[in-house]
Write a protein that binds this DNA or RNA. Structure first.
Lengths: 191, 191
DNA sequence: GTCTATACTCTGATAGAC
DNA sequence: GTCTATCAGAGTATAGAC
Protein backbone atom coordinates (compact mmCIF):
# COMPACT_ATOMS: atom_id res chain seq x y z
CA UNK A 1 0.00 0.00 0.00
CA UNK A 2 1.24 3.48 -0.90
CA UNK A 3 2.26 5.94 1.81
CA UNK A 4 1.74 9.66 2.00
CA UNK A 5 4.88 11.67 1.43
CA UNK A 6 5.18 12.95 4.94
CA UNK A 7 4.80 9.48 6.38
CA UNK A 8 7.46 7.98 4.12
CA UNK A 9 9.82 10.71 5.18
CA UNK A 10 9.31 9.82 8.81
CA UNK A 11 10.13 6.19 8.18
CA UNK A 12 13.33 7.15 6.39
CA UNK A 13 14.30 9.45 9.22
CA UNK A 14 13.78 6.69 11.74
CA UNK A 15 16.15 4.43 9.82
CA UNK A 16 18.65 7.24 9.47
CA UNK A 17 18.59 7.89 13.20
CA UNK A 18 19.01 4.22 14.10
CA UNK A 19 21.97 3.84 11.77
CA UNK A 20 23.63 7.02 12.99
CA UNK A 21 23.20 5.91 16.59
CA UNK A 22 25.07 2.70 15.84
CA UNK A 23 27.78 4.59 13.99
CA UNK A 24 28.38 6.97 16.87
CA UNK A 25 28.61 4.11 19.35
CA UNK A 26 31.12 2.29 17.15
CA UNK A 27 33.22 5.44 16.90
CA UNK A 28 33.02 6.93 20.41
CA UNK A 29 31.78 4.07 22.58
CA UNK A 30 28.34 3.87 24.20
CA UNK A 31 29.40 6.11 27.07
CA UNK A 32 30.09 9.07 24.83
CA UNK A 33 27.21 8.52 22.44
CA UNK A 34 24.92 11.41 23.37
CA UNK A 35 21.67 12.42 21.74
CA UNK A 36 23.43 15.60 20.72
CA UNK A 37 26.13 13.70 18.82
CA UNK A 38 23.64 11.48 17.05
CA UNK A 39 21.34 14.39 16.23
CA UNK A 40 24.27 16.34 14.83
CA UNK A 41 25.21 13.45 12.56
CA UNK A 42 21.65 13.25 11.25
CA UNK A 43 21.48 17.03 10.91
CA UNK A 44 18.66 17.67 13.38
CA UNK A 45 18.26 18.66 17.03
CA UNK A 46 18.12 16.21 19.95
CA UNK A 47 14.42 16.98 20.35
CA UNK A 48 13.78 15.55 16.89
CA UNK A 49 15.13 12.19 18.05
CA UNK A 50 12.75 12.22 20.97
CA UNK A 51 9.89 12.91 18.59
CA UNK A 52 10.46 9.52 16.94
CA UNK A 53 11.57 7.57 19.99
CA UNK A 54 10.28 8.60 23.37
CA UNK A 55 13.63 8.49 25.13
CA UNK A 56 17.28 7.69 24.65
CA UNK A 57 16.81 4.23 26.11
CA UNK A 58 13.92 3.46 23.79
CA UNK A 59 15.96 4.62 20.81
CA UNK A 60 18.76 2.20 21.61
CA UNK A 61 16.34 -0.61 22.36
CA UNK A 62 14.94 -0.04 18.89
CA UNK A 63 18.42 -0.42 17.39
CA UNK A 64 18.64 -3.91 18.87
CA UNK A 65 15.12 -4.84 17.79
CA UNK A 66 15.80 -3.72 14.24
CA UNK A 67 19.01 -5.72 14.09
CA UNK A 68 17.21 -8.88 15.13
CA UNK A 69 14.56 -8.32 12.48
CA UNK A 70 16.80 -7.56 9.58
CA UNK A 71 19.73 -9.89 9.95
CA UNK A 72 17.38 -12.39 11.47
CA UNK A 73 18.63 -14.27 14.46
CA UNK A 74 15.62 -16.53 14.30
CA UNK A 75 15.99 -17.89 10.76
CA UNK A 76 19.59 -18.85 11.27
CA UNK A 77 19.11 -20.34 14.69
CA UNK A 78 15.73 -21.98 14.47
CA UNK A 79 15.53 -23.16 10.89
CA UNK A 80 18.92 -24.74 10.49
CA UNK A 81 19.14 -28.44 11.11
CA UNK A 82 22.51 -27.98 12.75
CA UNK A 83 22.34 -25.44 15.58
CA UNK A 84 26.10 -25.34 15.72
CA UNK A 85 26.45 -23.68 12.33
CA UNK A 86 23.69 -21.20 13.12
CA UNK A 87 25.17 -20.09 16.41
CA UNK A 88 28.67 -19.76 14.99
CA UNK A 89 27.37 -17.77 12.04
CA UNK A 90 25.81 -15.28 14.42
CA UNK A 91 28.99 -15.00 16.48
CA UNK A 92 31.16 -14.46 13.41
CA UNK A 93 28.78 -11.80 12.20
CA UNK A 94 28.78 -10.01 15.55
CA UNK A 95 32.56 -9.76 15.49
CA UNK A 96 32.16 -7.43 12.51
CA UNK A 97 29.90 -4.96 14.33
CA UNK A 98 31.70 -3.83 17.50
CA UNK A 99 29.25 -1.00 18.20
CA UNK A 100 26.36 -3.41 18.20
CA UNK A 101 28.11 -5.80 20.58
CA UNK A 102 28.89 -2.97 22.97
CA UNK A 103 25.32 -1.71 22.81
CA UNK A 104 23.94 -5.18 23.40
CA UNK A 105 26.17 -5.89 26.38
CA UNK A 106 25.52 -2.54 27.91
CA UNK A 107 21.74 -2.70 27.59
CA UNK A 108 21.74 -6.29 28.86
CA UNK A 109 22.89 -4.91 32.22
CA UNK A 110 20.73 -1.79 32.24
CA UNK A 111 17.68 -3.87 31.32
CA UNK A 112 17.93 -5.71 34.63
CA UNK A 113 15.71 -2.89 35.89
CA UNK A 114 12.11 -3.99 35.13
CA UNK A 115 11.29 -0.38 34.21
CA UNK A 116 13.88 -0.30 31.45
CA UNK A 117 12.33 -0.35 27.95
CA UNK A 118 14.62 -3.20 26.92
CA UNK A 119 13.62 -5.41 29.86
CA UNK A 120 11.03 -7.45 28.00
CA UNK A 121 13.18 -7.43 24.87
CA UNK A 122 15.95 -9.30 26.65
CA UNK A 123 13.61 -11.68 28.46
CA UNK A 124 11.82 -12.66 25.27
CA UNK A 125 14.89 -12.81 23.07
CA UNK A 126 16.72 -15.02 25.55
CA UNK A 127 13.77 -17.32 25.82
CA UNK A 128 13.41 -17.64 22.03
CA UNK A 129 17.11 -18.11 21.49
CA UNK A 130 17.40 -20.83 24.07
CA UNK A 131 14.37 -22.78 22.91
CA UNK A 132 15.60 -22.56 19.31
CA UNK A 133 18.98 -23.94 20.29
CA UNK A 134 17.46 -26.58 22.54
CA UNK A 135 15.07 -27.68 19.79
CA UNK A 136 17.90 -27.84 17.28
CA UNK A 137 19.99 -29.97 19.59
CA UNK A 138 17.08 -32.25 20.31
CA UNK A 139 16.44 -32.69 16.60
CA UNK A 140 20.06 -33.34 15.68
CA UNK A 141 20.57 -37.09 15.95
CA UNK A 142 24.17 -36.93 14.75
CA UNK A 143 25.36 -35.61 18.10
CA UNK A 144 25.37 -36.87 21.66
CA UNK A 145 24.95 -33.92 24.08
CA UNK A 146 26.52 -34.35 27.50
CA UNK A 147 23.84 -32.19 29.16
CA UNK A 148 20.10 -31.87 28.71
CA UNK A 149 19.14 -29.53 25.81
CA UNK A 150 17.84 -26.72 28.04
CA UNK A 151 21.01 -26.57 30.08
CA UNK A 152 23.10 -26.83 26.93
CA UNK A 153 21.24 -23.87 25.48
CA UNK A 154 21.71 -21.84 28.64
CA UNK A 155 25.42 -22.64 28.73
CA UNK A 156 25.90 -21.75 25.07
CA UNK A 157 24.10 -18.46 25.51
CA UNK A 158 26.23 -17.67 28.57
CA UNK A 159 29.45 -18.53 26.73
CA UNK A 160 28.49 -16.39 23.76
CA UNK A 161 27.67 -13.38 25.98
CA UNK A 162 30.70 -13.89 28.21
CA UNK A 163 33.09 -14.23 25.29
CA UNK A 164 31.81 -10.96 23.91
CA UNK A 165 32.97 -9.24 27.09
CA UNK A 166 36.40 -10.81 26.72
CA UNK A 167 36.55 -9.95 23.03
CA UNK A 168 35.55 -6.32 23.49
CA UNK A 169 38.43 -5.66 25.84
CA UNK A 170 40.82 -7.87 23.87
CA UNK A 171 39.85 -8.27 20.19
CA UNK A 172 42.39 -11.03 19.61
CA UNK A 173 40.01 -13.47 21.31
CA UNK A 174 38.58 -15.77 18.65
CA UNK A 175 34.98 -16.20 19.81
CA UNK A 176 33.80 -18.41 16.97
CA UNK A 177 36.71 -20.81 17.27
CA UNK A 178 36.21 -21.27 21.00
CA UNK A 179 32.49 -21.89 20.69
CA UNK A 180 33.13 -24.31 17.85
CA UNK A 181 35.52 -26.38 19.92
CA UNK A 182 33.27 -26.19 22.96
CA UNK A 183 30.30 -27.58 21.07
CA UNK A 184 32.40 -30.39 19.65
CA UNK A 185 33.59 -31.25 23.15
CA UNK A 186 30.19 -30.94 24.77
CA UNK A 187 28.10 -32.60 22.09
CA UNK A 188 30.46 -34.88 20.17
CA UNK A 189 29.43 -36.49 16.93
CA UNK A 190 28.31 -40.07 17.27
CA UNK A 191 30.63 -42.60 15.68
CA UNK B 1 52.36 1.54 62.82
CA UNK B 2 50.07 4.06 64.50
CA UNK B 3 48.15 6.62 62.42
CA UNK B 4 47.44 10.23 63.19
CA UNK B 5 43.83 10.87 64.13
CA UNK B 6 42.91 12.77 61.01
CA UNK B 7 44.51 10.17 58.80
CA UNK B 8 42.72 7.30 60.52
CA UNK B 9 39.46 9.17 60.11
CA UNK B 10 40.09 9.51 56.41
CA UNK B 11 40.62 5.78 56.08
CA UNK B 12 37.38 5.07 57.92
CA UNK B 13 35.52 7.52 55.69
CA UNK B 14 36.85 5.77 52.60
CA UNK B 15 35.54 2.45 53.86
CA UNK B 16 32.22 4.01 54.76
CA UNK B 17 31.86 5.50 51.29
CA UNK B 18 32.70 2.25 49.53
CA UNK B 19 30.17 0.32 51.59
CA UNK B 20 27.47 2.92 51.09
CA UNK B 21 28.09 2.90 47.34
CA UNK B 22 27.48 -0.83 47.23
CA UNK B 23 24.37 -0.49 49.36
CA UNK B 24 22.85 2.15 47.10
CA UNK B 25 23.51 0.05 44.01
CA UNK B 26 21.87 -2.98 45.60
CA UNK B 27 18.83 -0.92 46.49
CA UNK B 28 18.37 1.34 43.46
CA UNK B 29 20.45 -0.29 40.73
CA UNK B 30 23.64 1.09 39.26
CA UNK B 31 21.76 3.46 36.97
CA UNK B 32 20.19 5.38 39.83
CA UNK B 33 23.20 5.27 42.11
CA UNK B 34 24.30 8.90 41.96
CA UNK B 35 27.04 10.56 43.95
CA UNK B 36 24.31 12.58 45.62
CA UNK B 37 22.51 9.44 46.88
CA UNK B 38 25.71 7.89 48.21
CA UNK B 39 26.85 11.14 49.79
CA UNK B 40 23.48 11.53 51.47
CA UNK B 41 23.74 8.05 52.96
CA UNK B 42 27.21 8.81 54.33
CA UNK B 43 26.04 12.21 55.58
CA UNK B 44 28.30 14.39 53.43
CA UNK B 45 28.11 16.23 50.10
CA UNK B 46 29.02 14.79 46.68
CA UNK B 47 32.15 16.94 46.67
CA UNK B 48 33.45 15.07 49.71
CA UNK B 49 33.30 11.80 47.78
CA UNK B 50 35.31 13.30 44.97
CA UNK B 51 37.89 14.41 47.48
CA UNK B 52 38.64 10.80 48.39
CA UNK B 53 38.22 9.29 44.94
CA UNK B 54 38.95 11.43 41.94
CA UNK B 55 35.79 10.60 40.04
CA UNK B 56 32.67 8.48 40.17
CA UNK B 57 34.24 5.84 37.96
CA UNK B 58 37.32 5.60 40.18
CA UNK B 59 35.13 5.23 43.24
CA UNK B 60 33.30 2.26 41.76
CA UNK B 61 36.51 0.72 40.48
CA UNK B 62 37.77 0.91 44.06
CA UNK B 63 34.71 -1.00 45.27
CA UNK B 64 35.62 -3.89 43.00
CA UNK B 65 39.28 -3.79 43.97
CA UNK B 66 38.43 -3.84 47.65
CA UNK B 67 36.09 -6.79 47.17
CA UNK B 68 38.83 -8.81 45.50
CA UNK B 69 41.25 -8.02 48.32
CA UNK B 70 39.02 -8.79 51.20
CA UNK B 71 37.03 -11.82 50.16
CA UNK B 72 40.02 -12.91 48.16
CA UNK B 73 39.32 -14.42 44.81
CA UNK B 74 42.93 -15.51 44.51
CA UNK B 75 43.21 -17.67 47.63
CA UNK B 76 40.13 -19.63 46.79
CA UNK B 77 40.93 -20.06 43.13
CA UNK B 78 44.68 -20.50 43.09
CA UNK B 79 45.38 -22.37 46.32
CA UNK B 80 42.73 -25.01 46.12
CA UNK B 81 43.73 -28.30 44.64
CA UNK B 82 40.33 -28.64 43.01
CA UNK B 83 39.54 -25.56 40.88
CA UNK B 84 35.96 -26.72 40.60
CA UNK B 85 35.22 -26.11 44.27
CA UNK B 86 36.97 -22.74 44.20
CA UNK B 87 35.06 -21.47 41.21
CA UNK B 88 31.72 -22.68 42.51
CA UNK B 89 32.40 -21.12 45.91
CA UNK B 90 32.92 -17.77 44.26
CA UNK B 91 29.76 -18.10 42.20
CA UNK B 92 27.67 -19.06 45.21
CA UNK B 93 29.06 -16.13 47.13
CA UNK B 94 28.31 -13.72 44.29
CA UNK B 95 24.67 -14.78 44.26
CA UNK B 96 24.39 -13.25 47.73
CA UNK B 97 25.60 -9.80 46.66
CA UNK B 98 23.40 -8.64 43.77
CA UNK B 99 24.69 -5.06 43.87
CA UNK B 100 28.24 -6.26 43.40
CA UNK B 101 27.30 -8.45 40.46
CA UNK B 102 25.50 -5.58 38.79
CA UNK B 103 28.43 -3.24 39.39
CA UNK B 104 30.88 -5.79 38.06
CA UNK B 105 28.89 -6.49 34.89
CA UNK B 106 28.31 -2.85 34.24
CA UNK B 107 31.92 -1.79 34.67
CA UNK B 108 33.09 -4.73 32.58
CA UNK B 109 31.40 -3.06 29.61
CA UNK B 110 32.37 0.52 30.44
CA UNK B 111 35.99 -0.56 30.94
CA UNK B 112 36.23 -1.52 27.28
CA UNK B 113 37.31 2.09 26.84
CA UNK B 114 41.10 2.13 27.47
CA UNK B 115 40.69 5.47 29.25
CA UNK B 116 38.34 4.00 31.85
CA UNK B 117 39.97 3.65 35.30
CA UNK B 118 38.82 0.03 35.52
CA UNK B 119 40.39 -0.94 32.18
CA UNK B 120 43.60 -2.37 33.60
CA UNK B 121 41.71 -3.84 36.55
CA UNK B 122 39.66 -6.04 34.25
CA UNK B 123 42.58 -6.98 32.02
CA UNK B 124 44.74 -8.03 34.96
CA UNK B 125 42.00 -9.75 36.92
CA UNK B 126 40.90 -11.77 33.90
CA UNK B 127 44.45 -12.82 33.24
CA UNK B 128 45.04 -13.88 36.84
CA UNK B 129 41.75 -15.70 37.10
CA UNK B 130 42.30 -17.66 33.93
CA UNK B 131 45.84 -18.70 34.72
CA UNK B 132 44.76 -19.77 38.21
CA UNK B 133 41.99 -21.94 36.79
CA UNK B 134 44.23 -23.30 34.03
CA UNK B 135 46.96 -24.16 36.55
CA UNK B 136 44.45 -25.85 38.83
CA UNK B 137 43.09 -27.94 35.99
CA UNK B 138 46.56 -28.88 34.88
CA UNK B 139 47.46 -29.96 38.40
CA UNK B 140 44.31 -31.97 38.98
CA UNK B 141 45.09 -35.48 37.81
CA UNK B 142 41.68 -36.86 38.84
CA UNK B 143 39.99 -35.23 35.85
CA UNK B 144 40.27 -35.56 32.09
CA UNK B 145 39.57 -32.14 30.47
CA UNK B 146 38.08 -32.23 26.98
CA UNK B 147 39.82 -28.99 26.00
CA UNK B 148 43.24 -27.51 26.67
CA UNK B 149 43.49 -25.75 30.08
CA UNK B 150 43.66 -22.21 28.66
CA UNK B 151 40.55 -22.69 26.56
CA UNK B 152 38.80 -24.37 29.47
CA UNK B 153 39.63 -21.39 31.68
CA UNK B 154 38.37 -18.94 29.06
CA UNK B 155 35.15 -20.90 28.62
CA UNK B 156 34.55 -21.14 32.37
CA UNK B 157 35.10 -17.43 32.80
CA UNK B 158 32.72 -16.69 29.93
CA UNK B 159 30.06 -19.00 31.36
CA UNK B 160 30.36 -17.43 34.81
CA UNK B 161 30.02 -13.90 33.41
CA UNK B 162 27.24 -14.84 30.99
CA UNK B 163 25.25 -16.67 33.66
CA UNK B 164 25.40 -13.58 35.83
CA UNK B 165 23.61 -11.66 33.11
CA UNK B 166 20.91 -14.33 32.95
CA UNK B 167 20.65 -14.48 36.73
CA UNK B 168 20.34 -10.73 37.20
CA UNK B 169 17.32 -10.54 34.94
CA UNK B 170 15.90 -13.85 36.22
CA UNK B 171 17.11 -14.75 39.74
CA UNK B 172 15.67 -18.28 39.53
CA UNK B 173 18.66 -19.28 37.40
CA UNK B 174 20.90 -21.52 39.50
CA UNK B 175 24.36 -20.42 38.41
CA UNK B 176 26.35 -22.71 40.68
CA UNK B 177 24.39 -25.79 39.69
CA UNK B 178 24.86 -25.16 35.98
CA UNK B 179 28.60 -24.55 36.30
CA UNK B 180 28.92 -27.64 38.44
CA UNK B 181 27.27 -29.84 35.85
CA UNK B 182 29.20 -28.18 33.04
CA UNK B 183 32.55 -28.90 34.67
CA UNK B 184 31.58 -32.50 35.28
CA UNK B 185 30.59 -32.85 31.63
CA UNK B 186 33.61 -31.03 30.27
CA UNK B 187 36.26 -32.49 32.58
CA UNK B 188 34.87 -35.81 33.81
CA UNK B 189 36.51 -37.71 36.61
CA UNK B 190 38.75 -40.51 35.45
CA UNK B 191 37.49 -43.95 36.27
C1' DG C 1 3.44 14.83 11.08
C1' DT C 2 8.01 16.90 11.44
C1' DC C 3 10.79 19.63 13.75
C1' DT C 4 13.13 23.97 16.25
C1' DA C 5 13.65 26.77 20.21
C1' DT C 6 13.73 27.12 24.74
C1' DA C 7 13.90 26.01 29.34
C1' DC C 8 14.11 22.90 33.20
C1' DT C 9 16.37 19.41 36.16
C1' DC C 10 19.86 16.48 37.32
C1' DT C 11 24.42 14.82 36.75
C1' DG C 12 29.56 14.68 37.68
C1' DA C 13 33.03 17.91 38.33
C1' DT C 14 35.95 22.25 39.73
C1' DA C 15 37.48 26.37 42.65
C1' DG C 16 38.09 28.29 46.57
C1' DA C 17 36.49 29.52 51.41
C1' DC C 18 36.52 27.68 56.05
C1' DG D 1 39.22 17.50 55.03
C1' DT D 2 35.02 19.20 53.99
C1' DC D 3 31.76 22.62 52.53
C1' DT D 4 29.48 26.11 49.36
C1' DA D 5 29.05 27.87 45.02
C1' DT D 6 29.24 27.25 40.52
C1' DC D 7 29.95 25.01 36.16
C1' DA D 8 29.11 22.56 31.66
C1' DG D 9 26.79 18.90 29.85
C1' DA D 10 23.33 15.46 29.83
C1' DG D 11 18.40 13.93 28.94
C1' DT D 12 13.88 15.58 28.67
C1' DA D 13 9.32 18.40 28.46
C1' DT D 14 6.70 21.87 26.25
C1' DA D 15 5.09 25.35 22.88
C1' DG D 16 4.56 26.33 18.74
C1' DA D 17 6.33 27.06 13.62
C1' DC D 18 5.79 24.85 9.31
Amino acid sequence: MAQRGSYAKGVARREEILESALEVIGRDGYQNASLKQIAHMVGVTPAALLHYFGSKEELFTEVLRKRDEHDGMDPRLADLADPREGLIDVIRHNAEVPGLVELFSRLAVDAVDPEHPAHSYFLERSERLRSAVAAGLHRDSTREPALDPDTMARVLQAVADGLQLQWMIDPTVDMADIVERLIDALAPRRD
